[in-house]
Simulated scan of single mutants.
Amino acid sequence: MVLGLSANAGASGPVVPTPVVALPSLSFSSTQVAAVCETLEESGDIERLGRFLWSLPVAHPNLRDLSKYEAVQRARAIVCFHLGQFREMYTILESQRYTKTSHCRLQALWLEAHYQEAERLRGRPLGPVDKYRVRKKFPFPRTIWDGE
């Protein structure tokens, strides 16, 4: 990238570089974003999945549509779990109904997040009885539980 100097180069203020060449902006459709999220989730590369989600523009033209895609919401929940942002993960998991194919994975995230929080509070690993109590105290939300 080529940078130019601003007009105030000789003035007492700081020299501010201005881009001469405009940077390209990537524009993905909602379907493409969902497909990328699904592919990265399947590959197990959570760090890359997180970077991809963070790279999406805040003013994405289809921002409302993105939240309708289960793959995008599931990816956001997985990234939040791996970052230890459990409260945000819970909110995402409770925000919409997920298909039965996602339930197992999301239920595991739900339980593991609650187990980790309980271990931090108690300052020790949980035993089987402790885990049972956590499961009773924090049942699955209806969005990721099909009654089985």
Rank of each mutant, 00 (worst) to 15 (best):
Y115P: 02
A77Y: 02
G13P: 05
L3E: 13
D45R: 09
R120I: 07
L121T: 06
L56N: 01
S30N: 02
L63C: 04
A71R: 11
R64A: 15
I144Q: 01
L63R: 12
R120S: 09
H82L: 05
V2G: 03
Y115N: 01
F52Q: 05
P61L: 08
R97T: 05
P57H: 12
G13A: 15
E47W: 08
L126V: 05
A11T: 15
D65C: 02
L66C: 10
Q96V: 09
A9S: 07
E88A: 11
T18Y: 11
R51C: 07
Y90V: 05
P128I: 07
E119V: 04
F140E: 04
G84T: 10
K137R: 11
E47Q: 12
E38P: 00
L93K: 04
Q73W: 03
H114N: 14
E112L: 13
R51Y: 08
L106K: 01
V16H: 09
E70C: 06
A77F: 04
Y98I: 03
A7Y: 04
V21D: 08
V58H: 05
F86L: 04
T101W: 04
Y132P: 01
E41D: 09
A118C: 08
P128Q: 09
P61Y: 10
K100D: 10
D146A: 11
T99C: 08
W110S: 00
A34G: 00
S43V: 09
L106A: 03
L26S: 04
E148T: 14
S25K: 10
S30P: 03
K137V: 05
F28E: 00
R97L: 06
E148Q: 11
Q85C: 06
S12Y: 10
F81H: 14
P19M: 04
R142F: 07
L126Q: 03
Q116A: 13
L66M: 07
S55Y: 04
R97I: 01
Y115D: 00
N62A: 14
L66H: 03
E112K: 12
V72Y: 15
V16I: 15
V21P: 01
N8M: 09
L56W: 02
E70T: 15
A9K: 07
K131N: 05
Y90H: 14
E42G: 06
E42M: 11
R142M: 06
S29L: 00
T31C: 02
R51L: 13
Q96K: 14
I78S: 03
A75N: 06
R64G: 08
V36K: 00
L23Q: 15
I78K: 03
R135E: 15
M89S: 00
R51E: 14
K136R: 15
L63A: 12
A77R: 01
L109D: 03
S67T: 10
G44C: 14
R76T: 11
S43F: 09
G50D: 08
M89T: 03
E47P: 00
C104I: 09
E42N: 12
V79N: 10
V79L: 12
A22S: 12
E70W: 06
S55N: 08
C104F: 13
G4S: 15
W54L: 14
P14D: 14
V58W: 03
A59V: 07
A34E: 01
R120K: 10
K136Y: 07
G50F: 07
Q116V: 07
R133L: 15
